[in-house]
């Protein structure tokens, strides 16, 4: 058998994976190859997913957007995608550089499970459902069920992430992140705020400030009650309070990219601004 396989169907990919526990799935390579190049990963056999047709692209299924695990960031920055999923399109647009966005995938962002994965706060705010498959069948997980810690997931070796389902936008959404430059930066902190004008709910996901993805639930509940849903306005002090509650949900650390204190502060500022933009 070949040590590097490039299947074209999902069934073929899952069968190969089930038969070989040492087969490493490879999507866009933007995380995988960095580890290989730096000697942190020595693949024995590789399952390249780039040619698996079922994993590509995205489609709208009524009120749901079904995003293939192999959907690239550049595809998610597409204007048609941005209409249905504004915050995810914003996040996709800010990731890496054109070279990275051309090949990096949403499935890879989830499977890598870095606290700094920029799609993760958006998917949390949206209550995304992640479909995972193996030859044994499929299961569906929330993002915080899939990702349990820094670069840790509940994926079994024979499982692949196949798609992500999110609701089509029913109100304003904003994604913000901060780092040392606009392009090609790993977030020091990030946040997504999603308003649902029909359900009268607010989703708020935090990035780079917790080991595993979280929602700022106190901030969400507060804002949902404070917003006048008929006019999309809120009383004085609402956005400031929202920022404070969002920052309270952060449990950041000091590392080479930033400090815990700065990250918490940045979450408060960005949460306030994101809600202000949603309400303006």
């Amino acid at each position: 058998m070949s040590n590097v396989v490039v299947p074209t169907t999902l069934d073929e990919a899952l069968a190969l994976l089930a038969a070989d526990p040492q087969l490493s799935p490879l999507a866009g390579g933007t995380d995988f190859m960095v580890e290989v190049n730096h000697g942190a990963r020595r693949p024995v056999r590789v399952l390249a997913l780039r040619a698996v047709a079922e994993l590509r692209g995205w489609r709208r299924d009524g009120d749901v957007l079904v995003i293939g695990a192999g959907c690239t960031y550049v595809s998610m920055a597409d204007p048609a995608f941005a209409v249905a999923a504004p915050a995810l399109a914003q996040a996709a647009r800010t990731i890496g550089s054109p070279q990275i966005r051309n090949v990096g995938t949403i499935g890879g962002n989830l499977a890598t499970a870095s606290p700094a994965g920029d799609t993760l706060p958006v998917l949390m705010a949206l209550g995304a459902r992640v479909e995972v498959a193996s030859t044994e069948g499929t299961r569906t997980l929330a993002v915080d069920e899939l990702i349990t810690g820094v670069k840790r997931t509940v994926l079994h070796p024979a499982e692949l992430i196949t798609s992500v389902r999110i609701p089509v936008a029913r109100g304003p959404q904003e994604f913000c992140k901060i780092g040392t430059r606009n392009a090609m930066v790993i977030s020091a902190a990030g946040i997504a705020v999603v308003l649902d004008r029909e359900a009268h709910t607010v989703g708020c996901g935090l990035g780079s400030v917790t080991a595993a993805p979280v929602r700022a639930t106190d901030a969400e509940t507060f804002a949902a009650e404070a917003i006048d849903w008929s006019t999309l306005r809120a009383g004085a002090g609402t956005t400031e309070r929202f920022g404070t509650l969002a920052a309270d949900a952060a449990t950041p650390i000091d590392d080479h990219r930033s400090t815990a204190a700065y990250r918490r502060h940045a979450i408060g500022v960005m949460a306030r601004r994101a809600l202000e933009r949603c309400l303006s």
């Binding site: 590097v4 490879l26 866009g28 390579g29 190859m33 390249a48 070279q99 090949v103």
Partner: peptide, 9 residues
């Protein structure tokens, strides 16, 4: 980026 492409794939 060629550095991020697994050549055999």
């Amino acid at each position: 980026c060629a550095c991020l492409v697994l050549a055999a794939a």
